[in-house]
């Protein structure tokens, strides 16, 4: 883990993006977006629907190719060395990535095997997200909040160094939010990128803020340097 410590002493960037662009056909979704995120810190990506937040997360998760610019994550360049960072990134997206007809436990065991994680970790996490009692019910029979809790467990199953969270608390009530806080919250130890369209809540969580508007970075800087009203104005 050469990225965790830097001989020069400065905090190294866990994620460094330089003039990243991504198109869908001839539509430009991301246009020359640049930022650096030091290890252990949290970046909040804000913007309206369809502005490219999820696309950015999918690129970081190695699921989409960047079209131009450079993307370096945990010291490895994408997409060439995507295989080297796979398994060190956890993605919590809009889709739960769980099979509806398998139980929560079966799903997690499947993911644990794919990531070569021992089976006890599954039980620990089921306990941690409060799903032990419903772990053998098929996912299709669970409420959205429960599925989201399982999804959190799935995303952190392999203890990723980088967590990509796409509106992580959208389906959770406050109590469930508390429950997953140690796994994906500020104290979880991972470098986090989270998207949100609620600037108020995001500012509390984040060290750095990236506001996207029309595929461009409208603001990038420390969360302390801007308030929610200014942010809203930037991308509204």
């Amino acid at each position: 883990m050469s990225t965790a410590t830097d001989p020069a002493g400065a905090t190294p960037a866990a994620i460094a993006i330089d003039r990243l662009s991504r198109y869908f056909g001839e539509r430009t979704v991301l246009r020359e977006v640049s930022f650096e995120l030091p290890a252990g810190q949290t970046l909040a990506v804000l913007g309206r629907n369809g502005v490219g937040k999820s696309t950015l997360l999918r690129i970081l998760a190695t699921l989409l190719r960047p079209h131009s610019g450079t993307v370096t994550i945990l010291g490895e360049q994408l997409p060439q060395r995507g295989w080297a960072v796979r398994g060190r990134i956890g993605l919590l997206g809009h889709e739960p990535l769980l099979y509806r007809d398998l139980s929560g436990r079966e799903n997690l065991i499947y993911h644990a095997r794919l990531h070569r994680v021992p089976g006890q970790r599954v039980e620990q996490l089921l306990e941690a997200v409060g799903m032990s009692s419903r772990a053998d019910d098929p996912v299709r029979s669970l409420s959205r909040g429960m599925v989201q809790r399982l999804t959190v467990a799935r995303a952190v199953l392999h203890s990723p160094q980088v967590l990509l969270l796409d509106e992580p608390k959208s389906n959770l009530d406050p109590a469930a939010g508390e429950l997953v806080e140690p796994l994906i919250g500020r104290g979880c130890g991972a470098t986090r990128v989270l998207t949100s369209h609620d600037p108020q809540a995001a500012l509390v969580e984040a060290d750095l803020v990236l506001a996207l508007s029309g595929g461009r970075a409208a603001y990038f800087g420390p969360a302390s340097g801007i308030d929610a009203a200014q942010l809203r104005e930037l991308y509204a």
Partner: peptide, 17 residues
Amino acid sequence: VAEREQGGFDAFLLAPV
């Protein structure tokens, strides 16, 4: 079909395999 509709492809692609 299950891979496509229930995210199995993504889950597989995220794993170091």
